[in-house]
């Protein structure tokens, strides 16, 4: 009876495998882009560096370089505060982005396609084409 040293190890391995299956499956679905978080039509990227449409206004609410690097965190952080705390900063509302950057395809998608990301924000939020 005492010679079963290896069993718990094997056992743990088996359990881990099963759990991995259960947890990995949803993750795979997301990764494959088929999840409910269905992502935007990915336009195969062709051509040189992204060409951004020129913005309408004089200046962005933050410095452009900062925006380029941080807009996603900025939006996401604000998203939580807006939904949950009711924070409304009217001058910095997402709706107002479109006042200057008037086309999703000519502005947002340009970089997003270039770097191959497909955020699903605009599955629900509307933004001018």
């Amino acid at each position: 009876m005492r010679s079963l040293q290896s069993h718990p190890v094997k056992f743990t391995v088996l359990l881990a495998l099963v759990w991995a299956f259960v947890l990995v499956l949803p993750t795979m679905v997301v990764a494959s882009g088929h999840g409910a978080a269905a992502q935007q039509s990915k336009v195969a990227y062709s051509g040189g560096p992204p060409q951004l449409e020129k913005a309408k206004g004089d200046a962005c609410i933050r410095e452009s370089g900062w925006m380029r690097r941080n807009h996603m965190d900025f939006l996401k952080h604000r998203r939580a505060e807006t939904v949950r705390e009711g924070l409304r900063i009217r001058s910095e509302s997402l709706v107002r982005c479109a006042e200057c950057h008037q086309s999703h395809e000519k502005f947002c998608d340009q970089c997003h396609n270039y770097v191959g990301v497909a955020p699903d924000c605009f599955e629900c939020h509307s933004y001018p084409k």
């Binding site: 359990l15 099963v18 299956f21 259960v22 947890l23 949803p26 679905v29 997301v30 999840g35 978080a37």
Partner: peptide
Amino acid sequence: AIALLVGGLAVLMLDLGRPDRL
């Protein structure tokens, strides 16, 4: 017991509307 539990939990999780957010 473990086998049944894992089977049951798997179904429960895989039926979520958004399992990607588990």
